[in-house]
Design a binder for these strands. Structure first.
Lengths: 226, 226
DNA sequence: GCACTATGAATGAAGG
DNA sequence: CCTTCATTCATAGTGC
């Protein structure tokens, strides 16, 4: 309730930036893409969980009906939970394709194009033309707003006390910035759960998990701790 | 404090975008996003390690409790509290102003109004246009709903169990793509729709975790430029 | 501590 | 295209 310390946050951010702690170049698009990718990762993880459960079940009972029973919590993914969702939502794969097409500079979603896209996307799940159309519309509008970040010429020497205001102005259109109540600085990047490094080493040695995507930018972070 | 005209920034941003090369230092916002994502990543790693361990152990001991124990948290990984990501919350003062504006019959929060509101609210704490926008949107939707709900008398008994119990609160942030997609093939995120437990065992035994799935989409990760 | 609630935020869809 | 609505997700705060 006492989150009335916006100014402070701004100062902190400024000092941190000045320290060169997180000076990274990355566009919003890239950020978004990264987010999507990791999202896929999360999904995969869940899927793995399901598999694991299946394996476990296999050891006990070889019955096939176990599928429904054991994966009950995960049935959400399996699909049809009683009634169909009223709202369409792209599957990760579809999303991938859509993103790709979107980035291809094919800014104009023409009817013809949509038809093609549809035929491709329908391979990965149910989809309709309106879905695609809407998606592109929304995507475009969104990315338009996303473009509002620190303007380049903001790198003026005077970055002192004015920082908070500058921040405000740097994200005019859309800022899902949740400072306001961020007394702590950005020292803690991620929780780094109590994972035994040994375990991680075991699998990381046999199969390179983390490297598969090879996100160079991550090098700037303490990912090595993982 | 309108000395900072958001519009000005917008123009600047536009020109930068027009240049087609909007390289910029990461904002706190971006930083937050990235941190969060990495957090998820870290969590996933942990879970993967656990699972791997569980599976390995299972080969030796027939005890199922181990597997179950490890599996549960895996599915519930969604609980990822990740890092402290504070979402914006209006300060009491801001809230007052917002409420007042809302009651003023200013039911339609147009872009221009938002800008005005912003410049006023920013004096009392960090805030962005999106925050204001969302606030009004939510506010309106909420009051609208509150009105229709208290009259269930005439309402037809919606026997839809569709509203599933979301109390499980263990929903991953990425479950947005529930289903709705493929009754016939929901291999959405995975190359193989119906995964054979046998295959899983094979890879789990070999140790290479990520290779098995060979997520095609990931190959397209266009972050090479990053 | 876990479950519930309130609410900020994301996004698909519709309207103009 | 741009704006708006509706639905849903995620999380912070709160009560058991």
């Amino acid at each position: 309730m006492e989150k009335e310390n916006p100014q402070k946050e701004g100062v902190v951010g400024a000092s941190a930036a000045a320290a060169g702690l997180y000076m990274k170049v990355m566009t919003d698009e890239q950020m978004e893409l990264l987010r999507r990718q990791i999202s896929v990762y999360a999904t995969i993880c869940e899927k793995l969980a399901e598999m694991h459960k299946a394996i476990s079940a296999q050891h006990d009972l070889s019955g096939m009906k176990l599928g429904a029973l054991h994966c009950d919590p995960l049935m959400a993914y399996a699909g049809h939970k009683i009634t169909a969702r009223q709202r369409w939502s792209p599957t990760p794969l579809q999303l991938q394709i859509l993103e790709r097409i979107f980035e291809e500079g094919n800014g104009t979603p023409s009817k013809q194009k949509i038809k093609e896209i549809i035929s491709e996307l329908s391979q990965h799940g149910q989809i309709s033309e309106t879905n695609v159309y809407n998606w592109f519309q929304n995507r475009r509008a969104r990315s338009k707003r996303k473009q509002s970040v620190p303007a380049p010429n903001n790198m003026e020497p005077e970055v002192e006390a004015e920082t908070e205001f500058r921040k405000d102005s740097t994200k005019p259109e859309d800022t899902k910035f949740y400072d306001n109540s961020a007394p702590r600085d950005h020292d803690v990047y991620f929780p780094s759960p109590e994972v035994d490094p040994d375990e991680l080493i075991s699998w990381s040695a046999s199969g390179s998990v983390m490297e598969l995507q090879s996100v160079p930018s991550w090098g700037g972070f303490d990912v090595g701790e993982l």
